[in-house]
Amino acid sequence: MHPTAIVLLNLGGPASLDEVQPFLLNLFQDREIIKLGPAFLQPLIARLIVASRLLEVRTRYASIGGRSPILPETQAQAVALAQALAETGHPMEVRPVFRYSPPRAGGVLRELAGLGIRRILPVTLYPHACNATTGSSMGELKREAADLELEILPGVQSYATDPGYLDALEALLRTTLAQAPGATVVFSAHSLPLKQIQGGDPYERETQATVEALKARLGDIPGGYRLAYQSKVGPVAWLEPSLGSVLKELGGREVVVMPISFVGEHIETLFELDIEYRELAGKCGVTRFLRVPALGTDPTFIGALAHLALQGLS
């Protein structure tokens, strides 16, 4: 057995409607993803926010099947990555590790240590470097690994302009755009509080780098390109423009929305994009609303992760 295992880092999500509340509490209590008042008050503020939003969020999950699909999808990505590595002569254990729902870092690392694993190679499923996502996941991973005397390698912490990642995105975008060649392409990324960007977080810069790289690959298109942000939470200032405001400007046009900060389907794509923003687009007079699918187990994307993982081992 290879002494190094790969863990795929992702946010996580509730596996049932009963798990929505603990998932939200774990998320809002993490000051690395969002600071809510002074540190000693954050647990209380988090509980108040969750109480106020619980019914709405449960309703959203109910509308997409009563759970997040992120666990089975990430498990499928882990299986695909393990197979791709084995085909190159590098068989390795590959496991999902979520930040706010099972499987959490502690349990996965204990299991891997029991198998004789001594080194962990983290591979993020957040394409763009961000302290609130990969940074927070790496922090928890290192804390849990210390007690088990496991070595955490630097790993793969972003790949905003990796050629293989861009190849996969380009192919999916071209396929969808072929259905509406005159459409405006709207790249949609998860938003982030402006304070975090102003504090030096690289997320906005890396997101824009992906967008510019894809625009260069596709060249000029009749409908042009826009970048927008979604999934804002709370009253503080977040990255703009919002996806809603951009859709309001595109009445009378066809629109192709491409989620570029998500590599799998979950609440932000299946509910926000496919239900909420599709409905808003219709109200705004958008004549056709198409959405590019997330990468999932796309072979080109999995191949890119395998290549990056092997680089991380060298």
Rank of each mutant, 00 (worst) to 15 (best):
Leu9Arg: 04
Asn10Phe: 01
Leu11Ser: 02
Ala15Phe: 01
Ser16Lys: 02
Pro22Tyr: 01
Pro22Ala: 05
Pro22Ser: 01
Pro22Gly: 08
Phe23Gly: 14
Leu27Asp: 07
Gln29Met: 07
Pro43Asn: 14
Ile45Phe: 15
Ala46Ile: 02
Leu48Trp: 10
Arg58Val: 01
Thr59Gly: 05
Tyr61Asp: 04
Ile64His: 02
Pro69Tyr: 03
Ala76Pro: 06
Ala76Glu: 12
Leu81Ala: 14
Gln83Thr: 12
Leu85Val: 05
Gly89Lys: 03
Pro91Gln: 06
Val94Glu: 08
Pro96Gly: 04
Tyr100Lys: 03
Pro102His: 06
Gly106Trp: 00
Val108Ser: 10
Arg110Gly: 13
Glu111Ala: 14
Leu115Ser: 12
Thr124Ile: 00
His128Tyr: 03
Ala129Glu: 08
Ala129Leu: 11
Thr134His: 03
Ser136Gly: 08
Ser136Leu: 02
Leu141Ala: 14
Ala145Arg: 00
Leu148Gly: 11
Leu148Val: 01
Leu150Ser: 12
Pro154Gly: 09
Pro154Val: 11
Gly155Thr: 05
Gln157Phe: 04
Asp162Glu: 06
Ala168Ile: 01
Leu173Ala: 10
Thr176Pro: 10
Ala178Tyr: 07
Gln179Gly: 13
Ala180Gly: 06
Thr184Ser: 13
Phe187Ile: 09
His190Ala: 10
Pro193Ser: 10
Glu212Val: 09
Lys215Ile: 15
Lys215Tyr: 08
Ala216Lys: 15
Gly219Leu: 01
Ile221Lys: 07
Ser231Cys: 05
Lys232Ala: 10
Val233Arg: 08
Pro241Gln: 10
Val246Ala: 12
Gly251Lys: 01
Val256Ile: 03
Pro259Met: 00
Phe262Arg: 03
Glu265Arg: 06
Leu270Tyr: 12
Phe271Lys: 05
Phe271Thr: 08
Leu273Ala: 12
Leu273Val: 00
Arg278Ser: 11
Ala281Phe: 01
Arg291Met: 06
Val292Leu: 04
Val292Tyr: 02
Asp298Val: 14
Pro299Ser: 11
Pro299Arg: 07
Leu308Gln: 15
Gln311Gly: 14
Gly312Lys: 00
